[in-house]
């Protein structure tokens, strides 16, 4: 086990003990899905691809792919973005 993994493990344990939300302690994205009409992604790192059928967003742990129809970026802020449209799938890469 390398030094990096150990640090990650310690962090997770501490977060569990102190009940700190995961997205803060572990730098994870927080994704809110409202029905099939809206996705809110907090703590993102920018978008890789945007088209009416799919949006790919970089997040700290990898990449999130949203597929659907008539996708619109309703809102985009440095750490939060909101996608609206008819969402068909949400995937992690």
């Amino acid at each position: 086990m390398g030094w990096r993994d150990l640090r990650k493990k310690v962090r997770r344990t501490m977060a569990d003990i102190l009940e700190i939300p995961g997205e803060i302690a572990l730098d994870l994205p927080k994704i809110i899905l409202v029905g099939n009409v809206q996705v809110i992604i907090e703590n993102h790192r920018g978008i890789v691809e945007y088209s009416a059928d799919s949006v790919r967003v970089v997040v700290p742990a990898g990449e999130v792919t949203v597929r659907g129809r008539e996708l619109v970026l309703r809102n985009i802020l440095p750490d939060e973005l909101c996608i609206e449209g008819r969402i068909e799938s949400l995937g992690f890469v």
């Binding site: 920018g46 978008i47 890789v48 945007y50 009416a52 996708l71 970026l73 985009i76 802020l77 440095p78």
Partner: peptide
């Protein structure tokens, strides 16, 4: 490279909204 355009602008703190794809190279 419109995605790059969006990312750069967002990082600079320029707020924009209602981003809609018109066709392959226009938003």
């Amino acid at each position: 490279t419109l995605e790059k355009f969006i990312n750069l602008a967002t990082r600079r703190g320029i707020y924009f909204w209602d981003i809609r794809r018109l066709d392959a190279d226009r938003i």
